[in-house]
Amino acid sequence: MQKDGVNQEQLQALAQDIKNTLKASEIAQLIRLIAPTPTTGEMSAAEFETLMAELKDKSRRRGYSDTSITAARLVLVMGATVAEAAAETNVSRQAIHQVLKRIKRRMESLPENWVQVSTWLPAEIASQLEQIVTSLKSQGDSGGVQGDLALKLEVKI
């Protein structure tokens, strides 16, 4: 049976491949990324997913609940009003305003051009690196990481 130029059997096969290949959370993310979205939102679905991943990876603060993320997605991606998002998620308008404010504040506080690095190191080097990271973060919090930054990592292997 052919519908809109796509064979239903092909779609079924593709769906089965996706189920066999991806985890449930990856399928949910794929659905969010390919779902049709209006142009009234502040960002695309892909931008929102990237933002939330960055906030999770780079923030030392508590994360967001699934309900908060859903409400934020409705407003930022789908272009819903806060009242519409509140009705959809059974959360107060005030709570959604707070979540949006928290997200925007965290977006502004993330150091630009910083990336998360995760690796295994010898204990001595890891300890030195942790001290460097602490120093960089404190300089970043005070607006310092601008000029030359002399770092010495003593590697003895």
Results as ranks from 00 to 15, higher is better:
24 A>T: 12
64 Y>V: 02
120 W>Q: 08
96 I>L: 08
55 L>S: 01
44 S>M: 06
114 W>I: 12
22 L>R: 04
84 E>K: 05
68 S>R: 07
106 R>D: 11
40 T>C: 12
62 R>Q: 10
74 L>S: 02
57 D>L: 15
117 V>Y: 08
113 N>T: 11
25 S>R: 05
91 V>C: 11
78 M>I: 09
92 S>F: 13
83 A>V: 10
120 W>R: 10
92 S>R: 11
25 S>N: 05
36 P>I: 05
61 R>L: 10
103 I>D: 00
79 G>V: 04
51 L>Q: 10
111 P>L: 13
122 P>S: 15
13 A>P: 00
17 D>E: 09
25 S>C: 05
101 K>E: 15
83 A>M: 09
76 L>I: 05
77 V>K: 01
83 A>W: 10
79 G>K: 06
26 E>W: 04
81 T>F: 04
78 M>L: 14
67 T>A: 14
37 T>D: 14
75 V>Y: 03
45 A>S: 15
97 H>C: 03
13 A>N: 13
50 T>I: 12
73 R>P: 01
95 A>K: 14
51 L>C: 10
51 L>D: 10
17 D>L: 11
123 A>C: 09
15 A>N: 11
111 P>E: 05
14 L>S: 07
118 S>C: 11
42 E>L: 10
28 A>D: 05
97 H>V: 02
46 A>L: 10
112 E>K: 10
31 I>T: 09
82 V>L: 02
30 L>S: 04
95 A>P: 00
78 M>K: 11
123 A>T: 14
97 H>S: 06
52 M>L: 14
40 T>H: 12
92 S>L: 03
32 R>C: 02
119 T>W: 05
52 M>Y: 01
112 E>T: 13
69 I>W: 09
67 T>D: 11
12 Q>C: 15
18 I>A: 07
111 P>S: 08
45 A>T: 03
97 H>P: 00
61 R>H: 10
22 L>H: 04
36 P>L: 07
19 K>R: 06
12 Q>I: 15
40 T>E: 13
84 E>A: 07
107 M>P: 02
54 E>L: 13
56 K>D: 15
49 E>V: 07
100 L>F: 09
50 T>S: 08
99 V>K: 01
112 E>L: 09
125 I>W: 04
60 R>L: 08
107 M>W: 06
63 G>Q: 14
17 D>V: 08
118 S>P: 03
76 L>V: 03
28 A>Y: 02
82 V>P: 00
25 S>M: 03
103 I>H: 02
54 E>T: 04
23 K>A: 06
19 K>Q: 06
78 M>T: 10
20 N>G: 03
69 I>Y: 05
55 L>M: 13
119 T>N: 08
88 E>H: 12
70 T>C: 05
33 L>E: 07
